[in-house]
Amino acid sequence: MSTPPPAVTARPLPIRLRDRVVVPPAPRDTSVITGFSARTPERIIVEVPDPVSGRPTPLAVWHHAVDASARAAPADGPPGGGRDGEHRTPVVAVHGFRGDHHGLALLADCLPGLEMFLPELPGFGHSPAFPDAPHTVAHYVTALGSAVEALGLMTGTSAGRRAASPPGGRTRPTLLGHSFGSVIAAQLAAADPDRWAGLVLLNPICEPALTADDSTAKVLMSRIAAGYYEVSAALPERLGSALLSSPLVVWITGTVMAKTTDRHTLAYLHDQHQNYFSAYDHRQVLVEAYRASTTGSVLDVAERLRLPVLLVAGADDELGSVRGQKKLARRIGRASPLARLEILDGVGHLIHYERAPQAADLIRSFSAETGAL
């Protein structure tokens, strides 16, 4: 497999004290962060059944086609991949809690040779809330599975039988999830591992929120977050919704989680949070999704992940300790033909913003080692 040239990014701009208080404007050209041109996705709307009532509901999926400039050298494809981008493995990437497809845009930019599908979970972004079902992990898994089927990325399989290649010259897709999306992606992969070429988990949720590490500060942060959502749920609708979407709270969240030393990246992630962190359908969706995000972890299905798995975690992640990530990798390794854990220093829970090029390089390496992509 050919290796893409290293990304050329602008020299990092040091963060000044005032940048942490008054965030500078986000860069219009994100190549100063990634070294890659921004890709423009197409929005696809598929209908999926409500997991409780079966009523059809629309779900938005953002499709990144393979860049024309990447077709000549299938650097992001598997060994033996077809010419002109044929027979490449598509990637289905699931965003995290309070996110939408924008959160994974930098990663998509860094993988121009891959076809990517970024679904927006029901109740977030351009996907309306479920009409009848509560927003739980199990219901998200059901809806996402239906969406992947509707996109024609799957053919029927049963457990233990290798999936046939989907139509259109594609091979089986790879599944990717970030943060809360890692829990959803892991459960979907565990339900039928043979349907997927591989599983990539960025900032995987490796332990329930209130047991993250033995750090008092981390446990305290988790309890403050839980209290914030429960208080917001108990307040009158207008007041509770205002608290949940408060720009000040969103800024505090980004400030606490950011570890970057680059001014461009800091400005970008704050801009993303302010613009899209509150792009949810209504208060009940957010409260239900928060409860879902704190009551489970990838560990719940670790020993059912019988497919190659790449875990990419931050050494300073507030939502998962290094010890917890190593435990998760060991548990996955009991079933997986390959469970590879990469711990990135100097970053926390925002790998998809702060280390997108590095995460993309790890995905390419995983591809070369396993043929998963």
Rank of each mutant, 00 (worst) to 15 (best):
S2Q: 14
T3H: 14
T3Y: 15
P4W: 07
P5G: 12
A7G: 10
A10L: 13
R11P: 10
R16K: 10
R16Q: 14
R18L: 09
R18G: 01
R18T: 04
R18A: 02
V21W: 11
V23A: 06
P24N: 09
P25N: 10
A26G: 06
D29Q: 12
S31K: 02
V32D: 14
F36D: 07
T40A: 12
R43G: 13
E47C: 09
E47M: 15
V48W: 15
V52R: 14
T57M: 01
A60Y: 06
W62V: 00
W62S: 04
A68E: 07
P74L: 04
D76L: 00
D76F: 07
G77F: 03
P78H: 02
E86S: 05
R88Y: 00
P90I: 03
V91E: 04
V92C: 02
R98G: 07
D109K: 02
D109S: 04
P112A: 08
G113V: 06
P119W: 07
E120F: 02
P122W: 07
G123S: 09
P134Y: 11
H135T: 06
H135E: 04
Y140G: 04
L144R: 01
L144Y: 08
A150W: 06
L151E: 01
G152V: 05
G152E: 11
L153Q: 07
M154L: 10
M154S: 08
T155Y: 15
G156C: 13
G156D: 11
R161G: 07
R161P: 10
R162E: 04
S165Q: 09
R170H: 08
T171Y: 04
P173N: 03
G177A: 07
G177Y: 01
G181R: 00
I184K: 00
Q187N: 11
A190R: 01
W196I: 00
A197E: 03
L199K: 08
L199Y: 03
D213L: 05
D214L: 10
A217R: 08
K218T: 13
S222F: 13
Y229C: 08
E230N: 11
S232F: 02
A233L: 06
R238G: 07
A242C: 11
S246M: 13
L248N: 13
G254C: 12
T255K: 14
V256C: 15
D262R: 12
R263E: 02
R263F: 00
T265V: 11
L266M: 13
Y268T: 01
H270Y: 12
D281E: 15
H282C: 14
H282T: 15
V287K: 09
A289S: 10
A292T: 04
S297I: 01
S297R: 14
E303L: 06
R306V: 01
V309N: 05
L311D: 04
D317T: 06
S321R: 05
V322C: 09
R323Y: 14
K326H: 14
K327Q: 12
K327S: 12
L328R: 05
R330D: 13
R331V: 02
R331D: 10
I332N: 03
A335H: 00
A339L: 05
R340D: 05
R340P: 04
L344Y: 09
L344N: 00
H349M: 12
P357N: 09
L362V: 15
S365K: 05
S365V: 08
S367C: 03
E369K: 03
T370Y: 02
L373D: 04
L373Y: 04
